[in-house]
Deep mutational scan, measured.
Amino acid sequence: MEVRTIKVFTTVDNINLHTQVVDMSMTYGQQFGPTYLDGADVTKIKPHNSHEGKTFYVLPNDDTLRVEAFEYYHTTDPSFLGRYMSALNHTKKWKYPQVNGLTSIKWADNNCYLATALLTLQQIELKFNPPALQDAYYRARAGEAANFCALILAYCNKTVGELGDVRETMSYLFQHANLDSCKRVLNVVCKTCGQQQTTLKGVEAVMYMGTLSYEQFKKGVQIPCTCGKQATKYLVQQESPFVMMSAPPAQYELKHGTFTCASEYTGNYQCGHYKHITSKETLYCIDGALLTKSSEYKGPITDVFYKENSYTTTIK
């Protein structure tokens, strides 16, 4: 009895394709271990004539594949690729409408935090270190965002349907971005203890939790000093293409032309909904596939993004 075979390709990165001759009487799992086709788990399936010449994702289970996976995804987590594939199996079914010149995501599976993050990423200057993220990001900007969303979920250790947080998501993504040249110098002034300067680099240099107003941050924000008295913390120097200011959701007025974009969060910790506000020729609110415009805006804002380049204080 002759062994019926077909020729397929296996890959971990969709760049390096490895030619395989597979036995049609055995499952993919018996031949390769966990195997995925377009995100779908085909591990328990036997090869079919229609699979001839198709590319299958496999887990990096030998040295060659491990090197290829690390170079593309910059992670050695053995569960990463499987999590990416199972997320992709959902995100490829989502709709990605162009809204006001940006790629958004039609609401499904509690994905409003991903839509808000995706919209924000198209408006701030950011370059990702893992080629996987950078490639998928370019495709997302062009309207094909399924891979990018699935990668975000995998890097953030999230599953489809789980509630997510924009600030946490951005923080994970910033860790995989090139923020080497970003720098922030802060000064804390206390009447009792004097003053202390701190220099922050990388992710810490672009994120701040405690106030939404970048102007206020430049002037000074009140913080408790270690001595128990009130101290003032203010920005001395900022070198970065953008800054992200966050605070627990509270009524906040966004003035046209003073910011790049913002995240609105309605609801409580267990259950809520994100919308995205962007400042173009007027203010726009993007909620999944829905767009509304207004000249002014007041609502429960939790993150505001500002364009920056270089700032030095005039406070002496």
Rank of each mutant, 00 (worst) to 15 (best):
K316S: 15
A140Q: 03
A146F: 05
Y96L: 03
D13Y: 01
A40N: 13
A69Q: 12
T19W: 15
T302V: 06
K229H: 10
Q238T: 02
D109F: 02
L65I: 07
L186Q: 14
T292N: 07
Y252W: 12
R167S: 04
A150G: 05
E253M: 07
I152Y: 02
C190V: 01
C193M: 04
S310G: 07
K219N: 10
L173G: 04
M207K: 08
L126N: 03
L65A: 10
V189K: 11
Y214V: 09
E2A: 11
G220R: 03
T11Q: 06
D38G: 09
K46E: 13
Q197W: 07
I277H: 02
G272E: 01
G143S: 04
V67L: 15
R139D: 10
H256D: 06
E125R: 07
I286F: 08
M170E: 00
T55D: 03
V188K: 13
Q222H: 07
D109L: 03
G53H: 12
K92R: 15
K183G: 04
K229C: 13
Q30S: 15
D303M: 04
Q238K: 02
E308F: 07
Y284D: 09
G53N: 15
T232L: 13
Q30A: 12
S240Q: 03
M245I: 04
S279I: 01
G143Q: 05
A117M: 05
H18M: 06
N89D: 12
T76A: 15
A108S: 07
K127D: 11
L283N: 00
K298A: 09
D23V: 14
S79Q: 09
F174I: 02
G299Y: 00
T64I: 14
N110A: 03
Q216N: 10
V42D: 05
Q30L: 12
V189L: 10
R141W: 06
T91Y: 00
Y274C: 06
H276Y: 07
D63F: 10
F9V: 07
Q222V: 09
K127V: 10
Y297I: 07
K7R: 11
E2I: 10
N268W: 08
H176W: 15
L37N: 11
A145C: 10
L254P: 02
E264L: 06
V8L: 11
V160N: 02
N49H: 15
F148W: 03
Y155M: 04
F9K: 10
H256Y: 15
T11L: 05
K183P: 02
S25W: 11
E162P: 01
E68D: 07
S310Q: 14
E2S: 08
L173C: 07
C285T: 15
